[in-house]
């Protein structure tokens, strides 16, 4: 039987899901942070009408806060528990990258399923263009997941994880976050955010081309 990278990536994704199902560490941490952020914002904005710009910003900040704890579930745990060597021997780097990416994307999907209704209930109703919302959610999720997967892999290789994590992810996430907020603002106002969507999907294209390549360089010493 011959192996291919997609089958290997799926095997890694299934392994991670099985571990997550048994330990429930990544999802619980992600939900805790995301829900706490939304509830906190909802409490602070109680009885007030938030501007669309603020609504858009707070939505993506809540998603980002929720996704950050999930970062540790990918590569940092593998390095800290010493299982990264097994993973290096088992699959080629591109499969490891996309396998971990799929796992992070699953967490993003689950987190969104919990946060979106909660946000609509506690902070502000998510109105406007639903087609634009969906595209922003898909494109933003792809980029966010790719950046977090890549940064998790880079950070896992070093001893100074905390400082490096912030240093690496900030310049990669900030432009994405600004584009997503601009796009979400337009979607909330009922306009189709063509330019922000172009930016998000262009960013996604660059990340998908470069992410796996950069990962291959850092994954094996």
């Amino acid at each position: 039987m011959r192996s291919n990278w997609a089958r290997e990536a799926l095997a890694i994704w299934r392994k991670d899901l099985r571990q997550e199902w048994r330990l429930r560490q990544g999802m619980v941490a992600a939900l805790l942070m995301g829900v706490a952020t939304v509830v906190g914002v909802g409490f602070a904005a109680l009885g007030q009408t938030l501007s669309v710009g603020l609504q858009a910003g707070l939505f993506w900040v809540a998603v980002l806060f929720g996704m950050f704890p999930a970062l540790a579930r990918g590569f940092i745990v593998e390095e800290e528990t010493g299982t990264a060597d097994l993973l290096r021997l088992a699959a080629r780097p591109v499969s490891v990258f996309w396998g971990k990416w799929l796992f992070h994307a699953t967490l993003y999907g689950l987190l969104s399923a919990a946060l979106v209704p909660l946000y609509a209930l506690l902070v502000a109703p998510l109105g406007g263009r639903w087609d634009a919302w969906l595209l922003l959610w898909l494109g933003g999720g792809f980029c966010l997941t790719t950046v977090l997967t890549l940064c998790g892999a880079l950070v896992a290789q070093t001893a100074v994880r905390g400082a490096l994590l912030a240093g690496l992810t900030f310049p990669l996430l900030l432009p994405l976050l600004l584009i997503l907020i601009a796009g979400t603002r337009q979607a909330l106002e009922g306009a189709f955010p063509a330019e922000p969507l172009q930016g998000v999907f262009g960013y996604a294209l660059a990340l998908s081309a470069g992410g796996a390549w950069v990962f291959e360089k850092v994954w094996r010493e």
């Binding site: 039987m1 011959r2 192996s3 291919n4 089958r7 290997e8 095997a11 890694i12 299934r14 392994k15 088992a90 699959a91 499969s95």
Partner: peptide, 9 residues
């Protein structure tokens, strides 16, 4: 898992 990632039976 090992067998699947390495393309073995």
């Amino acid at each position: 898992w090992w067998a699947q990632t390495r393309g073995l039976p």
